[in-house]
Amino acid sequence: MRRGVILFAALLALGLLALWAGGGFTALRLWALAGAREVQQQMAGAVRGIATGAPGALAGLLAVCFAYGFFHAAGPGHGKMLIGSYGMARRVSLIWLAALALVSSLAQATVAVVLLYALMVGLGWARTQIEGVTETVLAPVSHAMILGIGLWLVWRGVAHWRGQAHPHHDHHHSHGPDCGCGHAHGPTPEQVAQISGWRDAAALVAGIALRPCSGALFLLVLSWQMGIAAAGVAGVYAMGIGTATVTVAVAASAYFLREGAFEGLSGGRLARAVPMIEIAVGLVVAIVSAGLLTSAL
C-alpha cells in the first residue's frame, strides 16, 4: 500500500517536474508572468485602500501579497532549485524538507524588513541603492553559499561512495552476505541527516533568504512613506507564505520523486545510487551557481 502511494506520488511529481522543465515550462512561466502582472495591478489599490482607511483593506492587502509571493515563486527562482536539488540529493524527511522551505521563505521576508529599515530608515539610503546592494553584494554571497552547498553535496557523495566501497575491495562484483541490504554501508542516511541536519539547514536558509525580493522592498518603501509601515511588514510576511506554498510543493515533489526512484531500486543498487545522485546533483548546483557567481562579480 505504502509502496503504491509513493510510486503514484513519484509519477505525479515526475510528470509535474517534466512539465515544468520541458515544454510546459514556457506555458507555466507565461501563466506565472500573467498572474504576477495581474497581482501587481491589484497591489496598488490594496495599498491605497489602507492609506485611505477603506474597510477590510488589511485583509485585502494580505490576500494580494500572498498571491504576489505565489506567482513570483512560480516563475524561475533560486529557492525552488535549491530546495528541489537538496531534497533530491539528501535523504531527509518530508516534514524537514517542507519546514526548510517555509523557514527559508519567512527568513527571506525578515531579511527584506531588516535590510530596508536598517538602510533606508536608519541610514537614509534610497531604495535604488538598497536594490543595488542586494544585486552587487547579497546576490553574490547567496550564490557563493549555494556553490558551497553544491560542493558539500559532492563531498558527501564521494565520502558516502568511498565509505561503502571500503569494507570489500571488489565492490562492483561482490555480493557477500553483508552486501545487498542497502543499509550496512557507511553511515546510514538517517545518521548523516541527523549529524548534518542543522548545518545544512542553516546554509540552505541563508542561501535562499539572503537575497530579498524587490517586490518586498517596493511594498516596504511604499508603506513607510505612506505611514502604514505595520501593514507593509505584515504584507511582506504574507508574500513569504505565498512563496512558501510553491517551495513546499517543490519540496514534496522532490521527496516523492526520490523515494519513488529508491523504491524501484533494491539493495546494493540503492546503496550505489544514493552517492551517485548526491554527486550529480551537487555538481549541477555547484556549476550553475559558480556561473552565476562569476557573472555577478
Binding site: L17, A21, G22, M88, M276, I277, A280, V284
Partner: peptide
C-alpha cells in the same frame, strides 16, 4: 532522478 535534477 539525476536527469530531472539537471532539468530542474
Amino acid at each position: 532522478a539525476v536527469a530531472l535534477a539537471i532539468a530542474i
